[in-house]
């Protein structure tokens, strides 16, 4: 953990540089999509992959694996994400959140038997989700153009950069030797299938019941991301509800 914190010092320099790219808040349904043509091609690929692989896998997972086991997989994958979240809370200067997340990781990794259970939530030590996308936002970087990434789905330029950095700074990667590290990848993959199952109603609605699934997924991703990153609500930027009172 210490080495990671030390390396994060270099990140702070990078972050203050990125703060130069700052921009003000934007309306909640603001869309910046100059790469729409390419994004739409990737969307069709992703939709096909969902139809032939992910959706059937999720249905099978739900049918074959008991709910208790699925919950344990989900808990475990969430637990392994916590050390990276601690690094991001520290970088954002949110020390209370960093401490809460550290305590949650300690409790669930021990009492929770390597993260299979979640006793921390019963003690009030809830997850405070964050990532490097949020860290970049805290340092003032704008989200940039919307991107749809192959096999991953909706993102932005900032979100994609954040994902790469999150992978690089994840403390677990420094401490867990191979081949256990590879098993963790497998666990994350299984958890992804579980998430497709948990949110099947929403995903089906977006992908298969919308007139334009690309546009529907894009607005849902952007609004949900802005919500999760605690983007400040600016009343002036809210649309006028009476604008179309014709």
């Amino acid at each position: 953990m210490f080495m990671t914190m030390f390396r994060s010092g270099g990140l702070l320099v990078l972050l203050s540089f990125l703060a130069a790219c700052a921009s003000g808040p934007k309306p909640a349904d603001h869309i910046n999509d100059p790469f729409e043509e390419t994004n739409r091609q990737i969307h069709e690929f992703n939709k096909a992959m969902d139809a032939i692989a992910l959706a059937p896998a999720a249905a099978a997972y739900g049918a074959v694996i008991p709910e208790d086991v699925r919950d344990a997989v989900d808990n475990s994958a969430n637990n392994l994400a916590l050390p990276g979240q601690v690094v991001n809370h520290v970088l954002q200067g949110k020390i209370a959140d960093a401490l809460q997340t550290t305590a949650r990781f300690a409790v669930n990794s021990t009492l929770g038997i390597a993260g299979l259970f979640d006793p921390a939530s019963e003690l009030g030590l809830f997850e405070v989700p964050t990532n490097f996308d949020e860290t970049l936002q805290v340092y003032g970087m704008a989200e940039g153009p919307y991107l749809e990434l192959p096999l991953i789905g909706g993102s932005t330029v900032r979100g994609t950069l954040g994902m790469v950095v999150d992978f690089a700074i994840d403390p677990l990667r420094q401490y867990i030797p191979s081949p256990e590290r590879e098993y963790l990848f497998l666990l994350k993959g299984v958890d992804l299938v579980g998430d497709r199952l948990t949110y099947s109603d929403l995903v089906d609605l977006l992908l298969y019941e919308s007139s334009d699934s690309y546009a529907s997924q894009r607005i849902a991703y952007l609004q949900n991301m802005r919500h999760n990153l605690d983007t400040e609500l600016v009343i002036e930027d809210l649309e006028d509800p009476f604008a179309f009172d014709y």
């Binding site: 909640a28 349904d29 919308s210 007139s211 334009d212 546009a215 529907s216 607005i219 849902a220 609004q223 949900n224 991301m225 802005r226 919500h227 999760n228």
Partner: peptide, 14 residues
């Protein structure tokens, strides 16, 4: 964070 009005504006527009 996902607004019904924004969702339906997208849907009706499409």
């Amino acid at each position: 964070g996902i607004s019904m009005v924004s969702t339906e504006r997208t849907e009706i527009g499409a």
